[in-house]
Nucleic acid binder design. Structure first.
Lengths: 289, 289
DNA sequence: CTTGCTATTGCGTAAAATGATATATTAACA
DNA sequence: TGTTAATATATCATTTTACGCAATAGCAAG
């Protein structure tokens, strides 16, 4: 029985949903279906009772689940003891972060780490920074770089890398956006459709009792920079994003901005994953700020 | 980690010899080499220290051996409990026997067994009946059909299927072989090159203080029938072989033959393998004679 | 220097896995 | 009662992988 099949099976036991498992495990639904079918064929028994709306473990499925768990844990233990034997960490760490983070922090973080542990491979998934926390909660990756939410879920651990102020940016050549505080109604805003920064802005406007004009809701801070540079309106992003943007010369920072609390950017992981020595090594390689 | 790789590895741990393992596991040496290479590559460590004359387990190899043993035993246990769950035996039994045995006993033995346990698959290896015992001792197959040796190795268990007298056969149209007892010197003998029957005949001639003329030493009782039918000489075989031979009408049985003890034909297995429920089921399906 | 023994490699073919797409089935809903 | 959305599976073309045969390479012993 091979480990990939086992982990697919185990994941499917959790989700009871072919689509979600195939997505999470980065294979196509058809491949997953066939892997399971083939598994059932070799065992000559059915593991899941499924119609087109639901998936349920059978008795035999439960039995196999136990086996699969024990077997993978045996494998983990072996790998661990092999590492102890060879005195060198090896394996695979998966990281989720935004494009900006991959340009800015990630490089500096991983550079040293890679030298210290050359046999550890990295898988990098980029996406909207605001999805980092949920990505980790859903077990999609080992680690993520993102903003610390106001209320950190108890399953997660967070380690600050830096603090970045929020800045408001406007197109270079539109004097009308020079001081939007005078004229919020006439100032189209470009905001994240969700996430910590959006919440902070919403709260600020509420407190001021202002109903701003929202021109566009986008996903990804990089997209905000892009739209602002094209002249669509003003937006709020972490300063770190601006500093790493190739468009930094195409927008200007507005000084009379709403005063928003800076965000804490850092590494985030499920506590249970920190028991993995590889992940712990990377975690510990970040000196406390 | 998949089970086939593990069992190849474990077997190689025992033999420390690529050639023998590949033969025993029915794959080509090159496939075995590459399986091990690939295993070492995934583990990113070397498991065997090998030059062109010797193969030795490394430290890491020993560690992996432990893992492999535990993992396969976990798998065995799972399959066992799955069988208990479904109340139906399933798996694979491998049997070694001569061509004759496959024609005569095997069919009747397996016919009922197959009906009782349709999910048990069979692998059949045919070869010289005299090799049956050593085949079992060398762990090449689960069960074998063969003659009970005078001294049964203590690791083995034996269950008689039938007793077959030994008969001497001669070509049909050669009157000179009618009563070889008158003229052993002038009677070319065709004998097995080894094995129980050969030993009995040798002993008989020794006791009579006769030095017979041995025309040919062959392997396999079927080959003896073949050569005798072609007129090369006379031979001694179990009656059961003659009865199942397509050449039965091309040879005749000599009545004034040396009086040799009949042989016991039966099923043979390593005692330890009888703990396997599949094999035990087949074993038990044979009523005691 | 040759021979025998072994593990390995090159290479052509066969088998298997995969992903994109189409299909089938069914629950939910209008 | 259609219609839509959700979801597992089947089909097919393509890529990847595994395998066996034959050749090779390394080494010890005669």
């Amino acid at each position: 029985m091979d480990n990939r099949t086992l982990s697919l099976f185990l994941h499917l036991c959790e989700t009871l949903h072919f689509g979600r498992t195939s997505q999470a495990m980065h294979i196509s639904p058809s491949a997953l279906t066939r892997t399971i079918q083939q598994l059932e064929e070799t065992l000559d028994t059915s593991l899941f009772e499924r119609d087109n709306r639901s998936v349920q473990l059978t008795k035999e499925g439960v039995l196999f689940q136990q086996y699969a768990q024990e077997s993978t844990s045996l494998w983990q233990n072996f790998k661990q003891s092999l590492m102890e034997e060879t005195q060198e960490l090896q394996g695979e760490i998966s990281i989720y972060c935004s494009v900006t983070a991959s340009y800015s922090f990630l490089h500096t973080i991983l550079n040293d780490f890679r030298k210290a542990h050359p046999k550890i491979g990295m898988t990098l998934h980029t996406g909207d920074s605001e999805d980092a926390i949920s990505h980790i909660l859903e077990d999609n990756d080992d680690l993520a770089i993102g903003a610390r939410p106001d209320k950190l879920p108890s399953k997660l651990d967070f380690k600050r890398i830096t603090i970045s102020p929020l800045v408001m940016i406007a197109p270079l050549n539109n004097p009308q956006y020079k001081n939007p505080a005078n004229n919020w109604k006439g100032t189209p805003l470009i905001l994240s459709e969700k996430g910590l920064i959006r919440k902070r802005i919403d709260t600020w406007f509420q407190q001021k009792n202002i109903k701003p004009t929202i021109y566009a809701q986008v996903s990804g801070n990089e997209a905000i920079v892009s739209m602002v540079s094209l002249g669509f309106g003003v937006g709020v992003i972490p300063k770190i994003v601006l500093d790493n943007s190739p468009l930094i010369d195409r927008v200007k920072t507005i000084t009379h901005q709403p005063v928003l609390e800076p965000i804490e950017v850092g590494l985030c992981a499920q506590k249970k994953r920190l028991q993995n020595p590889l992940i712990k090594a990377l975690w510990d390689s970040l000196s406390n700020p």
